[in-house]
């Protein structure tokens, strides 16, 4: 008898091993553990590197980021008043988004205690500048 090219002698020697591993495999499969991707001894580890946070290395190109509307600074309306100190932003697009959020807040916040506090802070700052000039 031959099994996929194996001779009788070898197949006898191997049958037990094949059955054992097959039984273990099927038994484990039947127990329904959560699948995971095991590490390979000879492969690059699937984990962050010394210079990269992702498990697959540094991203050289990502079309999702590329397609984001990156409006140039010249096209963006600037915040006319320097009254509100915005946190540092990573790009013109994010800065513009921040500005829009600020406008929305300003519109909806009129009359609220936060808005009143903001107005008082503006007056206090003007007072500080006036004091410096004197």
């Amino acid at each position: 008898m031959a099994f996929m090219g194996l001779t009788m002698k070898t197949s006898l020697k191997l049958t037990c091993k094949v059955l054992l591993v097959s039984v273990i495999t099927l038994g484990l499969w039947g127990c329904a553990g959560r699948p995971f991707d095991p590490p390979r001894a000879d492969e690059i580890p699937k984990e962050p590197g010394v210079f990269t946070k992702g498990a697959d290395g540094a991203v050289l190109y990502d079309s999702n980021k590329e397609r984001q509307p990156a409006a140039s600074s010249s096209q963006m309306p600037r915040a006319s008043s320097g009254d509100m100190q915005q946190p540092a932003v990573a790009s013109d697009y994010e800065e513009y988004e921040g500005y829009r959020q600020w406008l929305l807040w300003k519109k909806s916040a009129v009359g609220t205690p936060e808005y009143e506090e903001f107005q008082q802070w503006r007056e206090w700052r003007k007072y500080q500048e006036w004091k410096k000039q004197k």
Binding site: I44, G49, G54, D56, A58, V59, Y61, D62, S63
Partner: peptide
């Protein structure tokens, strides 16, 4: 149509 493309560099 193309939806998402990623190119990555890694090594050891």
């Amino acid at each position: 149509s193309v939806q998402a493309l990623e190119v990555k560099l890694s090594g050891q």
